[in-house]
């Protein structure tokens, strides 16, 4: 059984003047393990290899990375999904500054998330029990609230690569629509007026990389379309 050939992006700011790719040989004993398992095996060979991980079941969003050219979560991506010709190339999420190895600085990504005011706003006093919401109204949040902020979508989006300070990006816009679509939120017009500039929403060019890579199967492009419709309805 031949070992899996893994090529990993390495960069330690203290010792490396430039990033490089390091080759590893990993013996998976022929099992179809997850990419995260392979990373752990490599870390046993070289404890200096840095990557983020937490839940190892695809809900915390820590281990988004680029595997053989496609963004995804290492913990729920089996080798059989990505390995071609016994080779695996692992790189950090594209478009964000690298701190070390597979660890990127997510600051810009989080900043765009915060910019859309990702919290429910309701200017009426809360009742003694919960605010009522019909199952149909609640259904509108499905496919939106499940986002895990892994940044796989935004870092695969060329519009976000070119304008990460100005374009909110698919993840932030998905969350923006999650609150626009919530029957309990009363800040709709303020939210919309924060989005009508030429960059925040409209830099989306419908490339749909976000949809192709989302590990939770969500559709930011559709949410962006809905925001545009709401902006149009609001302004005309």
């Amino acid at each position: 059984m031949s070992n899996l050939q893994v090529s990993v992006y390495r960069y330690n700011p203290e010792t490396d003047s430039a990033p490089y790719m390091q080759e590893f040989q990993v013996d998976t004993k022929g099992r179809d393990v997850m990419v995260l398992d392979v990373l752990h095996m490599m870390k046993e060979q070289d404890s200096g290899l840095a990557f983020r991980r937490s839940c190892r079941e695809g809900v915390c969003g820590s281990d988004g990375m680029n595997m053989n050219g496609k963004n995804g979560l290492a913990c729920i991506t089996p080798l059989s999904d990505v390995v071609k010709n016994n080779k695996l190339v692992l790189r950090p999420l594209p478009g964000l500054p690298v701190i070390r190895d597979m660890v990127v600085d997510m600051g810009l990504f989080y900043k765009q998330y915060e910019r859309i005011q990702p919290y429910l706003q309701n200017d009426t006093p809360p009742p003694a029990i919960e605010r009522l919401q019909s199952p149909e109204e609640r259904d509108k949040l499905d496919g939106l609230y499940e986002c895990i902020l892994c940044a796989c979508c935004s870092t695969s989006c060329p519009s976000f690569w070119w304008n990460p300070e100005k374009f909110v990006g698919p993840a932030g816009l998905l969350q923006s629509y999650r609150f626009l679509a919530d029957s309990r939120d009363t800040a709709t017009s303020e939210r919309l007026s924060n989005l009508e500039d030429p960059f925040s929403v409209f830099r989306c060019r419908g490339i749909m990389n976000c949809v192709a890579v989302c590990p939770k199967g969500l559709n930011p492009t559709r949410a962006i379309g809905k925001i545009r419709e709401m902006l149009l309805a609001d302004a005309t």
């Binding site: 429910l120 309701n122 029990i129 919960e130 605010r131 919401q133 199952p135 609640r138 609150f179 919530d182």
Partner: peptide
């Protein structure tokens, strides 16, 4: 009230 998207019963609760 903070916005947690609970699933709902037909009566909205």
């Amino acid at each position: 009230h903070m916005g947690l998207p609970f699933s709902r019963l037909d009566n909205g609760r």
